[in-house]
């Protein structure tokens, strides 16, 4: 099981065991990670599940859809090069020990 290291907005780190195949957003909700609201429950409609990933793993995650790309510009915290909607990312070994930052709104 990959370990995901959520970096919270206040600087604290929360490391959790994640199940492969679940989304990062679901993993965050199941572990009560603060700052992931996920109002649309994973439909890429609300942009309240914004996370920032290290840029060097972005390419391992596959392309961003046009819809997600549009939505990311309107997340509450400003978009960064590593920004993604956590509901659109499936947990895999590529994310093992990766830091997933919750940007401060």
């Amino acid at each position: 099981m990959p370990t995901i290291r959520f970096l919270l907005a206040d600087g604290a780190e929360l490391a959790v065991e994640a199940e492969s195949g679940r989304t990062l957003m679901e993993t965050a909700l199941e572990n009560s990670v603060p700052g992931i609201i996920a109002e649309c429950n994973g439909s890429a409609a609300c942009a309240t599940c914004h996370v920032v990933l290290p840029e060097d793993i972005m390419s391992a995650l596959g392309p961003i859809s046009e819809h997600e790309n549009d939505m990311l510009d309107f997340a509450e915290a400003p978009r960064e090069p590593g920004s993604r909607l956590s509901c659109q990312i499936r947990v895999s070994d590529a994310l093992d020990n990766v830091s997933v930052r919750i940007p401060a709104a």
Binding site: I37, E39, C40, N41, A105
Partner: peptide, 13 residues
């Protein structure tokens, strides 16, 4: 500041 439910939640958001 807290999220509300005026636009619903879930897939029909």
């Amino acid at each position: 500041k807290k999220s509300h439910l005026a636009f619903g939640a879930g897939s029909h958001f």
